[in-house]
């Protein structure tokens, strides 16, 4: 028998007491610091955690509103649509699903607009559409956007986010890397600036082509940018990767990005740079 007895309290529940109903999606737990965030506040803060500065992914439309002056954007090639050149299993369904989810025909929006008053050809990728993968449509739209910059003698801004090449388009996807890079070579020869904005995540074929080729490469804080994904590297070298590996700060330290720019200052920074290069 125990020396002390713990009196069992009867568990009572407040019956009839009004419980506070929290609607779904009003609050969210921060992916960076774990604190509870009011979603409206998060939206107001450009989807950056006000406490730890964690940058959430943005859709291409949200990014467009944040980056391009309102009323100045004219979209091009919005109807460009994918084919299934390899007759790859389930690809057509995947495109349909991506189109429903991201509400766009493929993983990039391109057009002409003004950034903080400076005219530019703009391409903004969307990770929601098949992981922002680089297929024929993305490659063609970006190439046309670069050619438009050359024709209209403006700077080029590409905001990248992508898991890499689009496996379902096989070799056609791979060749988009060469196509887009060749177009950027011509932009450079025309003496026009290319500003590349790297956002979380940018890897594989997109990192190994246009997104690393900016006259100036800017990255958002904490963005994961690299050639191979961390899982592939871990499997190859059979050891855990150090903390912060392939993050924007790591790239800055190793000399592959020029600056890390928080989301709130991105538009202003792009505008300043475009103005400088055009003067």
């Amino acid at each position: 028998m125990a020396w002390f007895k713990k009196p069992k309290k009867e568990i009572t529940r407040a019956v009839g007491k009004k419980q506070v109903q929290v609607p779904q999606g009003l609050y969210a737990k921060c992916k960076g610091c774990g604190s509870i965030l009011y979603n409206k506040e998060l939206d107001k803060n450009f989807k950056v955690c006000p406490k730890c500065g964690y940058h959430y992914q943005l859709s291409s439309l949200e990014r467009l509103y944040l980056t391009v002056d309102s009323g100045s954007f004219e979209e091009y090639d919005e109807k460009l649509d994918s084919k299934n050149p390899l007759d790859f299993p389930e690809y057509t369904d995947k495109i349909k699903k991506g189109q429903e989810k991201a509400k766009m025909t493929d993983a990039v929006i391109t057009g002409m607009g003004k950034i903080a008053g400076q005219p530019a050809s703009v391409a903004i990728m969307d990770f929601q559409f098949m992981g922002g993968s680089l297929g024929s449509v993305v490659g063609e739209k970006i190439t046309r956007a670069v050619e438009r910059a050359i024709e209209k003698k403006t700077g080029m801004v590409i905001v990248s986010t992508s898991g890499g090449a689009r496996m379902q388009e096989g070799i056609f996807s791979l060749m988009q890397m060469a196509k887009t890079s060749a177009a950027l070579a011509r932009l450079g020869e025309a003496g026009l600036p290319y500003l590349s904005v790297l956002t979380d995540p940018t890897t594989g074929g997109v990192a190994a082509s246009y997104s690393m080729l900016g006259d100036v490469n800017l990255a958002e804080p904490g963005a994961m940018v690299g050639f191979a994904g961390p899982r592939v590297i871990e499997q190859t070298i059979r050891q855990k990767l150090p903390k912060g590996f392939q993050r924007a700060e790591f790239l800055l330290e190793h000399g592959f990005v020029d600056a890390i720019v928080p989301r709130s200052r991105m538009k202003q920074t792009l505008g300043q740079y475009l103005k400088f290069f055009r003067s």
Binding site: M177, A178, S181, A182, L184, A185, G188, E189, T203, A207, A208, S209, Y210, S211, M212, L213, V225, G226, F227, A228, V232, I233, T236, I237, L241, F245, Q246, H254, G255, F256
Partner: peptide, 26 residues
């Protein structure tokens, strides 16, 4: 394929390939 290793990432595997694509085009 290009080597997916730690040192390769540190030394900019993606930049190296991207640069070749751009320069070879010219």
């Amino acid at each position: 394929g290009a080597y997916p290793g730690l040192g390769a990432e540190e030394r900019g595997q993606s930049e190296a390939i991207a640069r070749n694509l751009l320069e070879m085009a010219k």
